[in-house]
Amino acid sequence: MVAAGRQSRPAAELRVGIVSVQGAVQPHAAAITRAGAAWTRVRHPEDLDELDALILPGGESTTISKGLERVGLYEALEAFAQSGRPVLGTCAGAILMAREVEGFPVRSLGLIDVTAVRNAYGTQVDSFATVAQGELEGLRAIFIRAPRLKRPGPDVEVLARVDGWPVFVRQQNALATTFHPELTPDGRVHAALLELARKRKR
């Protein structure tokens, strides 16, 4: 008996890897399946072969960071991003993609020119849901012990904000949200990831 599958196998055009060291893997897998793509779990560098896109899910960034170190995934993820394939990081995943991490530092990949501040809103009792402002109209965003993104560089496109703070950003093939698009039925963030993957394939 297994708690969760390790991949889906539809005859899909795109295959998305989900880093499965710790955190909310299944909600992302469900969102990718709903969007018509296939997913597979990523726990070792060789799992990245033949993927069209990658997701760094939410979870505990310290735990995920230590897990990535242990199996040598940091270097492999850097190489994956440099190949031009798109990467989406949510919450802890956004922290791991930032150029710099403040508060309680963890090693990050530096894929997006922002400073991530961990636990910037407080503890779980300060978690909240709201509607973000930006291109995606009516985007409902759930923030759970969320980080804040500060000082976006000139190459960073801010796609959505809450109270003036960037909550959805893009730099070339790297997308990051400080909220959890995988926990709501709104599929537009995952669709944006798949669209980047499709464009690259053409």
């Binding site: 710790q22 979870g59 978690s127 012990r145």
Partner: peptide, 17 residues
């Protein structure tokens, strides 16, 4: 009181740990 969705959301984030 906080919404059930946010409470379960944190539990989701702890999975695999």
């Amino acid at each position: 009181a906080q919404s059930f969705e946010l409470k379960v959301g944190l539990a989701e984030m702890l999975k695999g740990g």
